[in-house]
Amino acid sequence: MTGLTRHATFREILAQPAIWSAWGAQLSVADLRAWVTATGTDEVWFCGAGTSAYIGDILAAGLEGQPGPRFRAIPTTDIVARPHAYLRGSPKLIVSFGRSGKSAESIGLVVALDALAPTWPRLNITCNAASALGRDPKARVITLPEATHDQGFAMTSSFSTMLLTAAALFDASLPEQDSPRRFATLADTLQTLLPDFTDAARAARLPQRAVFLGSGPLAFAAREAALKVMELAAGRIPALWDSTLGFRHGPKSFTVEKTDLWLFRSADPHTRAYDEDLLAELRTQFPQSKVTAPAIPHHFPDLWSAPLYVALAQLLAIHWSDALGLNVDDPFAGQGTLTRVVSGVRLHPVTP
């Protein structure tokens, strides 16, 4: 454990409770909700790349079925590659997520919107005020605290704080006056869980493969969990994600000897029943695997508990990265293949 403290990524994971609590107390939810309503749009698109795209997936799944505008998760990478397929028709509220806010795709989305949908409202949520998203003159910008601008390769506090910020704005079931309390309660919950999570991560064996599963927003939390493992293990631990019911339909073939599985169980009793069925099945069918259902208090809807589950995966990933002898803060150092801010993307002009 002492060795891990030298890594920014480890410190950034542990800093999340303090960040959430302080940020929730100052976030102007009422003002931002009024601005969203004033846009008059009937669709909200959550956009980003990589982990920032997965934030949108979690949100769209977690907000499914509530009254009001339709929510869609559309990766920035999709829009930049095919702008004319998306940026047409009635205005949509474009919510862009970006840790650095200056990746090629973040810039490309701004360019595409300026060319094809200049009047569409924009809300940029970023950890970097001095970026394309932070300085977009046509956008309402939410700049997160500097502490969320992770210095490590992997997105940790940036992921969770951007997710919770958008959840506070768009979850109609949360009264705006209760938002600071929700952030504080989540922060206290994670602070309580972190010692057990850290012990579990330290004790976990180095698996041959890893699988993360869940339903609804927790399926996409599983997607982020799998990405953290592959990123920080520099691809040496293949990781898969799927939904609880979808896993049986072929992806279960990924499970071989020393494949360990984590199932993120839902707070919803109906959904949780399917989780428990799969949990029992996996433990029977794969005795060589370790099958874990993390003990998360079910005080919150799954949208809000998603960052709690992901925090465990973040800790697993850094312990495995360290065990593999990698630089936790830059697992691909010297390879030139992956970088903290994606490089190598050449943007092409967008013509109306």
Results as ranks from 00 to 15, higher is better:
Ala8Asp: 08
Gln16Tyr: 05
Ala18Arg: 07
Ser21Leu: 12
Trp23Cys: 01
Trp23Arg: 07
Trp35Ser: 07
Thr39Ile: 02
Gly40Asp: 10
Val44Gly: 10
Gly48Asp: 12
Ala49His: 13
Ala49Val: 15
Ala60Cys: 10
Gln66Ala: 13
Arg72Ile: 07
Ile74Ala: 04
Thr77Met: 11
Ala81Gln: 13
Arg82Thr: 10
Gly89Trp: 09
Ser90Glu: 08
Ser96Thr: 12
Ala104Met: 06
Glu105Met: 10
Glu105Gln: 06
Ile107Arg: 04
Ala115Gln: 04
Trp120Arg: 06
Ile125Met: 01
Ile125Ser: 00
Ala129Gln: 09
Ser131Thr: 04
Gly134Tyr: 06
Gly134Asn: 07
Arg140Thr: 10
Arg140Glu: 00
Val141Ser: 03
Ile142Phe: 04
Pro145Arg: 11
Ala147Cys: 04
Asp150Met: 06
Gly152Trp: 03
Thr165Ala: 10
Ala166Asp: 03
Ala172Asn: 03
Ala172Ser: 12
Ser179Trp: 00
Arg182Ser: 09
Ala184Thr: 09
Leu186Thr: 05
Asp188Leu: 04
Leu194Phe: 12
Pro195Ser: 00
Phe197Ile: 05
Asp199Glu: 15
Ala200Ser: 14
Ala204Val: 15
Phe212Val: 01
Phe220Thr: 02
Ala226Ser: 06
Ile237Gly: 02
Pro238Ser: 07
Thr244Asp: 04
Gly250Lys: 02
Lys252Ile: 03
Val256Gly: 12
Thr259Ala: 09
Trp262Asn: 05
Leu263Trp: 03
Leu263Met: 09
Arg265Val: 08
Ser266Gly: 08
Asp268Tyr: 08
Arg272Met: 01
Ile296Asp: 02
His299Thr: 13
Leu303Gly: 01
Leu308Arg: 05
Val310Arg: 09
Leu312Gly: 03
Ala313Cys: 03
Leu315Thr: 00
Ala317Tyr: 00
Ala317Arg: 02
Ile318Ala: 01
Ala323Val: 11
Asp329Glu: 00
Pro331Glu: 03
Gly336Arg: 11
Leu338Pro: 08
Leu338Trp: 08
Thr339His: 14
Gly344Trp: 00
Arg346Val: 12
Thr351Gln: 07
